[in-house]
Design a binder for these strands. Sequence first.
DNA 1: GCTATCGTCGTAAACGTTTACGGAATGGAG
DNA 2: CTCCATTCCGTAAACGTTTACGACGATAGC
Lengths: 343, 343
Amino acid sequence: MGIKELARHLNISIGTVSRALNGHPEVNAETRKRVLEAAAALGYAPDQAGRSLRQGTLNVVALLLSTDLTSKTDTMFFMELSRGIQDQFAEHGLDLVIHLNKPGMDMLDRVKRIVERRQADALILAETRDDDPRLDYLAGRGFPFATMGRSWSGGSHPWMDLDFDSAMRAAIDRLAGFGHRRVALVTGDPGYMLDSMLRDAYRRELAGHDLAVDEALMIKADTHEEGGYRAMTDFLAMSAPPTAVIFPHYRAVVGAYACLAEAGLQPGRDVAILSCSADTTIAQFMAPPLTCFRLDLYGLGGRLAQALLASMPRFAESYGSALVQEIWPWELIGRDSDGFRVG
Amino acid sequence: MGIKELARHLNISIGTVSRALNGHPEVNAETRKRVLEAAAALGYAPDQAGRSLRQGTLNVVALLLSTDLTSKTDTMFFMELSRGIQDQFAEHGLDLVIHLNKPGMDMLDRVKRIVERRQADALILAETRDDDPRLDYLAGRGFPFATMGRSWSGGSHPWMDLDFDSAMRAAIDRLAGFGHRRVALVTGDPGYMLDSMLRDAYRRELAGHDLAVDEALMIKADTHEEGGYRAMTDFLAMSAPPTAVIFPHYRAVVGAYACLAEAGLQPGRDVAILSCSADTTIAQFMAPPLTCFRLDLYGLGGRLAQALLASMPRFAESYGSALVQEIWPWELIGRDSDGFRVG
DNA sequence: GCTATCGTCGTAAACGTTTACGGAATGGAG
DNA sequence: CTCCATTCCGTAAACGTTTACGACGATAGC
């Protein structure tokens, strides 16, 4: 069962067995074959704890999800991302541990605990905030980590992010092409980099289309159904409501649709609705189908994992040690929720 | 940083330090206080690998999710469940590792690998199938595990499940009360215990209401939006379509709604739609709001974790060693998707 | 024939922790 | 004072693996 038993069974020393299993060159080809066959036959697999202790590594990477996922954000997004990350790690014998935090718990404390107790070899953070203290802490300790989403400063850690500028340009191009001039934006808390960058891109692209930026049309709301419902309610109460609304978070769109239905209005006919979010199956089954963006989240997760691996010394030989920071494009999928001419 | 350094810093042996930290009784109260204070001050936390090696335990429980989550099933369900499980485990210093499998991979192999490589101290399985080979394997090896969902035989392992009978009774009670006599059911693959039990309960409750069971009204479909769309399409093509349809999986309802909209029909007026699924935020924002069931998934996850703990020898002292198998009730929340009289 | 090199393998230390065992000090009973 | 029990603590072994070091034989160079 242990390596000792395997060695005894083969009349070989445990040192040689270990070397044979780990592919070290200084072992006879025939000996290696015997060892591998015996290991397979006896179902031997090295004990993680022993190996971890010896080489000071756990083969575990933790993914920390910071907000209350199920109630506020898009679980689909993170499931698909996690799958991509995990499959990539699996090829290197690494496990992904997803840490879901209780709403009240401080994220920095959580990170500190994981680092100090050596619960993982590396960390992946998501939903980063501007000036996120977690990043400084990890960088200060020299702990390997990567993030989904960049900071304003860029930073010197690996990350993947989305091209908000081009997405917003495509969105506003499309809406302006339909004749819309009062285009609203509903984001979540701008404390998150995601929402902050969306707002930034929105301002820039409006200006690029010679459209005035009306601060009243930039609403901050919760990123779930009820948030979207309330935001839409606010818009309808205006003296001059927007003719088009961009919802980066698709769950908010569900709320907005409900609000419009109650008011006897129809998305895609009375108000244009467009979502800057990854395309989900539900988007094409909404009534009317939702215009949003195509995004390869599975692939993105895989690349994020690779970027992290490249920053870890033990994988330097297979990945080099380049700093990988990528901005992924996404492609607009026009559907019926915003397809009408105005004015 | 290790326990050695901490001991040297205190002029105490490492044995005593270890005992002090682990709450053993044979250590002076004042010594214990000094140790705890120093540990906190120096930020010492025991190394998992060393501890694992010594006491042959990893403090890790794996949750195995078997189907392709994001594309086929309800991610919300498992996120909420996971949160409950994890929070419960956290109180005992256990980590929850979620293993997402690639669609093509055999589940039994995955389980075997986890057990043989000692990647976890216990397992939680979901989406069990009738005659699931994983259960036999684990029981045979004496490996601690629990399942979300029971088998027909009940089995001698801990599980949590839902009370399908009472839910189906409430659903059919309600629909029959509105005058419906042709009530259809759309489930996923009956190979899964969940769908199998739903079909069973459906048959029984129809009979209990003196309604005939028409096999043509029991459709098997994929449990996502497109599956619901297709099922609804099939119903509408019938010479005598059902006047009410029960969709256990809420994602399928989204597809059904879309199908009805295209046909110029309205849920809750032309066809009654009712979902035997946990209430999600989206359900109340559908148009019309969806009748479904309230379920405390977070609490359920916590109980499932406790049930598993009770089956593990090392936690016998805190949990006894009773076999915990519970069937949870859920409460129908009537909304507008099915609220109309027929006939 | 002596030495150097190479290929292969065994030995033993080390990783950080927990715990069985035994010892020292103390206190109380006789 | 002796003896025993109790309280507290130090010592060292053990968990399963990896790897630095050295050993051994064989081969080659001179």
